[in-house]
Amino acid sequence: MKDFQYAAPTTIQDATSLLTEHGSGARILAGGTDIIVQLREGLREADIVVDIKKIPELSDCQYSDVSGLYLGAAVACCDIYENADLAGRYGALADSTHIIGGWQIQSRASVGGNLCNASPAADTIPALIALNAEAQVTGPAGQRTIAVAAFCKGPGKNALVDGEFVVAIKIPPQSANMGSAYQRFIPRNEMDIAVVGVGSWIELDTVGNIANARLSLGAVAATPLFAEEASQFLVGKEPNDDNFALAAELAKQIVTPITDMRGTAQYRTHLVGVLVKRTLTTALARAQA
């Protein structure tokens, strides 16, 4: 592992200065579960590692019925699924944070880090897309907001420019008629990378039909995808197996998976259909509960 410097700023301003000063030579450390491995294995390099966990805004986690969830970028996965209120509201996020690595990883890994790492197979990103989340970003040019659905630009590449970092993730408030779920398919039962991951979110209207839906797909393209057409199809429909199956077929049409050691393109496409139906069923049950 190549040597680097370490800094742990306590304010957003100090962090921004450090990141601006070092440009692409700076790497952000939150939970460290990706970046430390990447530095060790030479997949990424750093002159300086900037530990952002001491900045209060990045460890903050608050919910309000008006503004929804403010999730500091450095908040660890276990802080989400262990929070019964949050886990109840944001089922897809709880599902995904509970299956990233093992318990030891979940104690450290952050949703912000999982997002910035921009893996096509990241577990939280489809959940965030389904929940219509956006990333609150700060940098030398000030603050801006990026929809999570537009955040990833390719495997390992994100929309941030040098000096920028994600401060928080914001997710719209949830009411009782909404439900969401994330599932992935893996060969083992834990400790694995998604062959395919699917996030589903639905909102029911007063008669129980689907008022709104968002479907998202992971590990089937260079970036996690928002399945817009499949989501739109469900709007106004009865939430039943037939409609879920039709949505699943629409979702399969937008994927461009690769064949690799985790699965063939054919198998991945098939799994999209399976998981769209399964996650919609779970999301529905949660919205009806």
């Binding site: 460290g32 590692v49 530990d51 966990k53 660890a76 276990c78």
Partner: peptide, 29 residues
């Protein structure tokens, strides 16, 4: 394994189990 996939290096930090291979020594401050 030195990359967080076997758990042989597990320690508890601030009441949470972590892989000590995925923590920098300086973070122990």
């Amino acid at each position: 394994c030195n990359n967080g996939n076997c758990g042989a290096c597990t320690v508890i930090i601030n009441k949470r189990p972590v892989n000590s291979c995925l923590v920098l020594g300086v973070e122990a401050e």
